[in-house]
């Protein structure tokens, strides 16, 4: 009998649970990325995992994002929908800060540098966002991105709103 692989989506997810014997459910910092995306603003970077300075951020992919840049590698995993990523080799890469930062003169103005190309992701696809590059996302229909990065000035921590308690 063929088995069916169950992937979640922002339109169809089922959150798990914790049965406590001793201790506090908060210790497990339990959330669901699709639920988080369903309640987020487009491209708001909501932290769902934090291991000291390292984080996993969830973004609701909807429309076109501002341009972001980062001094270190980041990795974007498309968990739902379809996302296009434009990349620019920045003339003035961000330095001295961890995590993603906004770049460009205005939020949607293309930053100075050479266009590198674009990557189109569907569910389950992972892209490298190289250190020193600028990038922005475009999603023609609602999607969800899980981003492996470092805590930065754009990271939003709302643990009490997203976690089981």
């Amino acid at each position: 009998m063929a088995s069916t692989t169950v992937f979640g989506s922002i339109a169809d997810y089922h959150k798990g649970s914790i049965e406590i014997v001793s201790g506090d459910p908060k210790h497990y910092v339990f959330s669901n990325i699709f639920e988080v995306a369903s309640k987020s603003q487009p491209y708001e970077r909501v932290v769902v995992g934090k291991n000291l300075e390292y984080v996993q951020e969830v973004m609701r992919a909807e429309g076109t994002s501002p341009w972001f840049g980062c001094a270190h590698d980041e990795f974007a995993l498309c968990m739902d929908g379809e996302v296009e990523i434009e990349l620019v080799k920045l003339a003035a890469p961000p330095t001295g800060k961890d995590g993603a930062v906004l770049i460009g003169e205005a939020p949607h103005e293309t930053p100075k540098g050479k266009r590198m190309g674009l990557i189109r992701l569907r569910r389950g696809h992972q892209a490298l966002l190289p250190a020193g590059c600028g990038y922005r996302f475009t999603a023609k229909k609602l999607g969800v991105i899980l981003q492996q990065t470092i805590l930065g000035e754009l990271s939003q921590q709302k643990w009490s709103q997203i976690c089981l308690q």
């Binding site: 063929a2 590198m116 190309g117 992701l121 389950g124 490298l128």
Partner: peptide, 26 residues
């Protein structure tokens, strides 16, 4: 067996071939 085997589409500008990278984790 039901997991999509499609890959991301990568369109590199001239001079950036091989510098953009993505794959299907699933």
């Amino acid at each position: 067996a039901d997991v999509s085997q499609d890959e991301p589409e990568i369109v590199a500008e001239p001079g950036f071939e091989g510098q953009l990278h993505a794959f299907s984790l699933f």
